[in-house]
Amino acid sequence: MTIADDELMAYADGELDAQRRSEIELALRDDAHLAQRLRAHQAMRARVRAAFDDELTEPMAPGVLQALEARQHPEASNDPSWGWRRWGGIAASLAIGLLIGRTLPPPSGAPIDWQTNEVVAGGALERALSTQLASAATEITPLRVPISFVDRSGRYCRAFQADRQAGVACRSEDRWVVQALVVDTPASAASGALRQAGSALPSMLLDEIDARIVGVPLNSAQETSARESGWRR
């Protein structure tokens, strides 16, 4: 009787029915090579399982435990990571480049201050992030801050937008660290895509926010109290 390797594997994984199992066991008795192949499958199964076993005893991340305990608000019936898009407006589809964190090239000057390991908002951007409220935006300012939210590591983060660039910055101690920046490339600048998009944030940036946000964006009361606390939590 020939037994294909796939079947031997299924035997090792406990997937065969009783009849096929006993047929194979019969064959194993007088086929040392077959028995050896089976042992290899069994050993691999045990070895892989054992290799991952000690991960079970590590403590869980706080965010995971919080997610398990969190009571859902009645109004938050949508998937939390997507529901917030209501606030962001319709995403524009743009030809843009997304630069993340430390991969940013040194800029020529303000409003972003290039430091060794992080990109810190300075000047007008820093002021807008610290003082402007998304919920209170009544006029078109050169720098808009349309969304404020709490990220997965528990920091306040804010999306910002100017004519030619948009990004996300998160509060880290006493500074705003730029986490993502979308820059209007010459190609998209020529078409005026970012400008035409008006108040909508670029889709790449919406994806970035999606990846970071916990729950939904801050409402005006939460935003106001966050500002009063100096954006510390």
Binding site: V64, L68, P80
Partner: peptide
């Protein structure tokens, strides 16, 4: 991995 577990827990509960 932690983020993925958290997201999965949130989605599962919803």
């Amino acid at each position: 991995a932690d983020d993925l577990v958290q997201l999965a827990v949130e989605r599962a509960l919803l």
